[in-house]
Amino acid sequence: MKPIWYFVGILLFIMGSIVLLAGLYTWFYPPPEQKILAYLHPDLWWGAVMIIAGTIFLLTNRKKTVA
């Protein structure tokens, strides 16, 4: 079977992409009520961090299988 780290990579990549895309959307279309510290755009850079982490897990485990 594929190692668990492979599945972790998939999930982090998908969720990071959604967070990043949601961040881009609110960048261009800010909601009427902003969250505290919204000017830091945590969704943009945190989404990017998750995508990078997910990609690393995916690339390092894509050919591995475990018993």
Binding site: L20, Q34, I36, L37, A38
Partner: peptide, 9 residues
């Protein structure tokens, strides 16, 4: 308080 759309989820 802190998490915008996407991060809240």
């Amino acid at each position: 308080r802190y998490y915008p759309s996407g991060l809240a989820g």
